[in-house]
Structure formats: structure tokens, C-alpha cells
């Protein structure tokens, strides 16, 4: 056997063998049972996939909301302290002080259901029944004038809900500033005058900390 193929095979292997390639399955793990999948698979998508059986009215939702949610979000979703504002803000998104709420910003109603079902109430997650989540979702949609007062939200009619701001989301267009191809950065005599225009000390919102930094460069 000549040396040549041996060298070739070494090169070949150094290219392919650098990261482990799994030729076949390792037979690790075990099959998930239906009960296990049912217990964890709670996510809901905009097309309705994942919605559990159930329904709930705006009226019932108001009751659940006042007991479980209003302490942080306020009776009408106006938000207490720095907790999220859930309702209102319509027409503010283009302005200087946008108020992003379910009605003014969120593109899909399924997100409201999915989030409440998995993460709310804060500190007692996954304690609401599907019917209660349908009801609270209906109530929040009503606070945002997306459904009427006598509305009942259900698995059946869920995907008929359209959110007003859905059309305003678009794909990431970055990079959106000049790259080397378009404009090489200036290195010398780039500007004549430089002035300080804004200062953090004037704002003065940095938390107090021990001034004696151990860092000495």
C-alpha cells in the first residue's frame, strides 16, 4: 500500500472526525408516555394548535381576574406600580411614549392564553383551569374592546379573534447600518469639533454603590 492513500485518509479523517458524527442512534432515553406528554404539552399557537377543551365568558373572567390578577394588573388592566399594563394604549404605539398592551401591541390572542395558562398568576403558575383561562382571556380581550361584554370564548371560536396590531409586525431587516462594504470607518481628522450633549450625572438615576472600586488600571 502506498503512503499516498494513507495521508489522504488522515486528511479526510481530520476533516470529518473533528466533531463526533453519529452514524446511528445511540438508543438513549425512553419513549414518553401519552400521560406524560399531556401533562407537559400545554403550549398554544396562533392557529389554535394546543388549545384545551373549554370555554369562558367575559363575566366569569372579570370575577377570576379580580380575585387572581387585579392585585398587580389593576381592576381594568391598567397596571399597579410597575406591573404590566394589559389594556388601553390604543393609538400610542407610534408616539413618543408607546403603551404596549394586549390590545395596542400583541399580534395574537393565542399568546394571551398560552402565557396565562403557563405562567400566571405570578407565583402560582398553572393553577387555573382551562375554563378559567378562557374566561380571563375573554375578559382581557373585552378590556381592550376586542370582544363584547356578552362574549364567550371557547376552543371552537378562538381562531376567529383577530388582533388589531397583527399587521404591524415584520421580519428582522438587520444589518441596518453601514458595513465595511458600504463605508469604511474614518480613522483620521474625522470631525473638527466635539461637544458633550448629554450627561448621566444630570439624570442621576444610578444606584448608590460603594465608591471604593477595587479596580485600578
Amino acid at each position: 500500500m502506498s503512503k499516498f492513500p494513507k495521508i489522504l485518509s488522515i486528511i479526510f479523517c481530520s476533516l470529518l472526525c473533528a466533531t463526533p458524527v453519529l452514524a446511528s442512534k445511540l438508543n438513549l432515553g425512553r419513549e414518553a408516555t401519552k400521560a406524560e406528554i399531556k401533562a407537559w404539552d400545554i403550549d398554544v399557537r396562533p392557529d389554535g394548535q394546543g388549545l384545551p377543551e373549554g370555554k369562558g365568558t367575559v363575566e366569569k373572567g372579570e370575577q377570576v381576574f379580580s380575585e387572581q390578577c387585579a392585585a398587580c394588573h389593576g381592576d381594568f388592566g391598567e397596571g399597579v406600580d410597575r406591573w404590566p399594563v394589559l389594556a388601553g394604549g390604543l393609538g400610542t404605539i407610534k408616539g413618543d411614549d408607546p403603551v404596549k398592551t394586549v390590545g395596542s401591541y400583541w399580534p395574537y390572542a393565542s399568546t394571551v392564553f398560552d402565557y396565562i395558562y403557563r405562567a400566571m398568576p405570578f407565583g402560582n403558575a398553572q393553577s387555573l383551569s382551562p375554563d378559567e383561562v378562557y374566561a380571563v382571556t375573554a375578559y382581557i380581550l373585552h378590556l381592550n374592546e376586542i370582544v363584547k361584554e356578552d362574549f364567550e370564548l371557547s376552543k371552537k371560536n378562538f381562531t376567529s379573534i383577530k388582533m388589531p396590531n397583527e399587521k404591524n409586525f415584520f421580519a428582522d431587516p438587520r444589518p441596518d447600518t453601514p458595513t465595511m462594504k458600504k463605508k469604511k470607518p474614518c480613522m483620521e481628522n474625522c470631525k473638527k469639533k466635539v461637544k458633550i450633549t448629554k450627561r448621566a450625572r444630570v439624570i442621576n438615576v444610578t444606584p448608590d454603590q460603594n465608591k471604593n472600586s477595587t479596580s485600578k488600571e
Binding site: D43, R45, P107, S110, T111, A119
Partner: peptide
């Protein structure tokens, strides 16, 4: 979970 479209979860919408 493996799917055929995005979920549009709270952390990627609001």
C-alpha cells in the same frame, strides 16, 4: 416541542 410554525410566545411578541 418540534413543530411546523412558530409559536409567537409572549417573549417573542409583547
Amino acid at each position: 416541542e418540534v413543530g411546523d410554525m412558530p409559536w409567537h410566545a409572549r417573549e417573542e411578541t409583547s
